[in-house]
């Protein structure tokens, strides 16, 4: 029997794997590959639903993410905000995680500026409220009690966009841009209790958790990580960070498959040797 080369041993040093992964991710970010992407039905559905809203519709976007996942959720947030503003939808931004506040405000403002939207009339940012469950439930009862002021201290009763919002009945769609499991709370309380439509834009590692709720109709749309962002960008005809990220993700996935094959070759050779 041939002696196994070191790289085919079962316990390949994980540092080698890490270096290979770093190369697989960095290379496509430096040298653009431009791999073609195909739009999935769940993204198409959300896009269609957004298209069906009109310029009086109010969309509540909850930036339920932390700083850690910002590189992955930023393309998701950008895509949905571009769609909202290009279709003249009214946007109310909130955050159920403290760290999502500054980042949520940043993406909201940046995108609003691109479309020359007016604060208070076309969009508002209300900031962070602690205690996810209580906030989601309370928004269904009395919007102004939860957010008497916006992020900048202005009264929500005076802002043109928010003065007539009483509860979920005045919101057309809730969108949770997330890196965690906060959409479960939106499903349990805003969807189940107040019968409100919800769309979820989640990081890839969390998105799979929400597919059962998409199939059961409890979620109206699901955009899955960078791939979803890239698909949304295709529908918007505005390729951006999502499309670029997909090249890197493709290479990373390819590397994982190669590692799995390598691991199995090593495993089988060792088994035959024994």
């Amino acid at each position: 029997m041939p002696v196994l080369p070191k790289y085919m041993k079962l316990n390949l040093d994980r540092r080698i794997i890490f270096i290979l992964m770093a190369i697989a991710v960095i290379f496509p970010l430096v040298f653009k590959l431009g791999l073609p992407n195909k739009v999935t039905p769940e993204v198409k559905n959300l896009f269609g639903q957004m298209e069906s809203l009109n310029d009086t519709s109010v969309v509540l976007i909850s930036f339920d993410f932390e700083a850690s996942s910002f590189p992955e959720v930023q393309p998701l947030a950008n895509a949905i905000l571009m769609h909202c503003f290009s279709n003249n939808l009214k946007v109310i931004g909130i955050s159920l995680l403290a760290e999502g506040t500054a980042l949520g405000e940043k993406v909201l403002k940046e995108n609003a500026a691109k479309y020359n939207k007016v604060y208070g009339k076309d969009y508002v940012f209300l900031g962070f409220r602690p205690q996810v469950t209580a906030t989601i439930l309370a928004l269904g009862e009395d919007f102004h009690k939860v957010f008497p002021e916006d992020y900048y201290g202005g009264s929500t009763a005076d802002l043109e966009l928010t003065k007539n919002i009483k509860n979920y009945k005045d919101i057309s769609l809730i969108i949770s841009v997330t890196d965690g499991d906060i959409p479960f709370s939106w499903i349990n309380y805003a969807v189940a209790r107040y019968n409100k439509d919800l769309a979820v834009l989640a990081t890839a590692v969390m998105a799979t958790s929400f597919y059962p709720f998409l199939n059961s109709g409890q979620i109206k749309g699901l955009v899955n990580g960078l791939k979803g962002a890239a698909e949304y960008e295709i529908l918007l005809k505005k390729p951006g960070m999502g499309a670029r990220g997909m090249d890197a993700q493709s290479m990373a996935h390819l590397l994982i498959v190669l590692l799995v094959i390598l691991g199995n070759i090593g495993y089988w050779m060792e088994r035959r040797k024994k």
Binding site: L35, P36, S250, H253, I256
Partner: peptide, 8 residues
């Protein structure tokens, strides 16, 4: 799934 979820 690893391959099917990316353009590759």
């Amino acid at each position: 799934i690893i391959l099917g979820r990316v353009p590759l």
